[in-house]
Design a protein around this nucleic acid. Structure first.
Lengths: 341, 341
DNA sequence: ATAATAATTGTAATTGGTTACAGGAGTACG
DNA sequence: CGTACTCCTGTAACCAATTACAATTATTAT
């Protein structure tokens, strides 16, 4: 492999000059620059990133930690992150934490040793203090979907009001017994969704029954099981609000398996608006959040932080709104007709 | 940040000894080892990966190049790769090539400079010669889903016979006008699928109509458009074989939009068996390939190659079989009843 | 007791870059 | 002509590890 020394020798200059041609071209005379550049091309030289990283204590790498590779939501985030990282000439280390705190911590240690220039967490598991320490001592950090003290960069959606809106929608359609299939409790967003759900019920003078709140774990299987359980009840709910689309889609399937027609016998709302939710039958009514954009914004925040390398960098919180995407799974059209006819 | 020198000084030994404690502990006396280890813990020292990488010309990183982050199939592959990489203490650089050859090439150059220890390509775009050069000069390579000369590691599914089987299934169910929505031509697997489809028709004395072969680009949108086009024909097909599940699911939706009932008016078969295909209505009959396992096997192959660092390493081809997963979208039960009643 | 051998440890070169500092050449100006 | 300045370039230290080789110490055999 050709290195900087060879280029220097071949071009008859010092390695410092070669390095300068690449890093501070304005300090090199036009002639030398052209000459060195041509030698580089001739030898097809490209600098060793590890050496450069060592010298600069910087790796041109950012890490993306996500709890579940297989969830399309996280992949849309990843796409957003990749799009800006690639443009900024950074690479992405993909870390699948499986929602396990020890795996997350293990990854963090590795990442610090690798001198990653920044870390994006989708649904971080660390405590606020741990994150704060990481961000202030080791590397810029951006959190997606976790609330924290406001000295950390965060991209957050208004999960609470999204859930509130979804539940209210069900209430307005006339449903009384509304169940909620939750995501894992260690993700703040799920707590918010649950609160929004309960508040919407209360504001409409509907009782909150604990038996109608069931953990679904955010994956297909968990959602299916939870939905089945709900539908086997002696008094099954008339509507289900699932904390994500994956579970909502699984609920659609569970409904078929249980002999329930959606939305005739049971209404379903999801959360996220993944692309699949517009394809299923019936098309899923869901709370849409700008997932791709969240990844994009998180990455932009991170690079702002990286490039601003200063003590008095001020962390930002970006708070995005959700939007209820009404499709077919709540029987909007039929219900409205009934109500107004 | 504490480095090896500090540990050495604190422990009263040389840096060489400290390094040996980590890398060749058997060459260090028991006492020294314990002492150094305790100092390390006390200072919470962890070696700088960049420096180590520079010295060893190795980064403990592998790269995964995929054409589309958003396709669940590729994410299942990624999961397989991650599972073994993490266990082997390697990290993964995620590279989204978007199916563009220049982006792929750009990434490869970056990866070489970063001294990645190996590269896994899912649906590689490079020519055989380019791959061969890369693999022999730069880094171990494993290809997923591309056929090539057998001096490269490959994990391949029998796309040809998978497509053959799917098409035959449709023929046996009595469908005559069978269409095929293809994936992009630059992916070898899609050529194979098309061939398998055509062969199955020929073997059953059915004509191959070019008008029934439409490009769908492997994504939801392309699949939807292709399916729509098919169903608007004056003589629409009775069955559609889509080159992947994403397009097959989009076809289900297009059918509803066009007033076709699946499978009553039109049958649909997919390819891949992504998890969503068991959830849609009707449940998708599809050619199942062991996607997760392919990622796993590809990673294992890669690490074999990395660890075997020798001239006479013999590349392997792993050839996996598909399995037709019969569900509901072809009307298997109804048809069979008709035929045998 | 002494030589030979084995087990430990240290010195210093090496990996491939970046950059502070020094020095030389060229130009402007008094 | 000498000084001051800018502009360009080179020398060498540095980043944080690994390891060949040398040096030292301990152990064993004679």
């Amino acid at each position: 492999m050709v290195n900087i020394k060879m280029v220097a020798k071949e071009a008859g200059v010092s390695v410092a000059t070669v390095s300068r041609v690449l890093n501070h071209p304005e300090t090199v005379s036009e002639d030398t620059k052209k000459h060195v550049l041509s030698i580089m091309k001739q030898l097809s030289y490209t600098p060793n990133s590890l050496a450069r990283g060592l010298a600069l204590n910087k790796s041109n790498t950012i890490a993306l930690l996500i709890p579940n590779i297989l969830n399309p939501k996280h992949m849309e985030i990843a796409k957003g992150v990749e799009d800006v990282a690639h443009q900024k000439k950074y690479n992405i280390l993909l870390c699948n934490t499986e929602g396990k705190k020890d795996k997350e911590k293990e990854y963090i240690n590795i990442l610090i040793n690798r001198k990653v220039d920044g870390i994006i967490f989708s649904n971080c598991l660390l405590s606020d203090n741990e994150i704060q320490e990481l961000a202030s001592q080791k590397a810029p950090v951006v959190l997606i979907g976790k609330k924290t003290r406001n000295d950390i960069n965060v991209v957050y959606t208004d999960y609470y009001s999204g859930a509130y809106e979804a539940t209210t929608h069900l209430v307005e359609l006339g449903y009384k017994r509304i169940a909620h299939i939750t995501g894992p409790r260690w993700q703040d967003e799920n707590i918010d969704k649950e609160k929004g759900y309960e508040k919407a019920l209360q504001d409409n003078n509907l009782p909150v029954h604990k038996k109608y709140i069931i953990a679904g774990d955010n994956d297909i299987n968990g959602g299916y099981l939870a939905a089945k359980k709900l539908m086997r009840m002696s008094e099954p709910p008339e509507a289900i609000f699932a904390a994500n689309d994956l579970m909502a889609i699984a609920t659609l399937d569970a409904a078929r398996a249980s002999g329930f027609k959606v939305p005739e016998n049971i209404a379903v709302v999801g959360f996220d608006n993944i692309s699949m939710s517009a394809l299923v039958e019936p098309k899923l009514t869901t709370v849409s959040q700008p997932i791709y954009k969240m990844g994009l914004l998180a990455a932009r925040l991170l690079f702002d932080n990286i490039e601003y390398e200063s003590q008095d960098y001020v962390p930002q919180s970006i708070f995005l709104q959700t939007k209820l995407k009404i499709r077919e799974s709540c029987g909007y059209n039929k219900r409205v007709r009934q109500i107004f006819d």
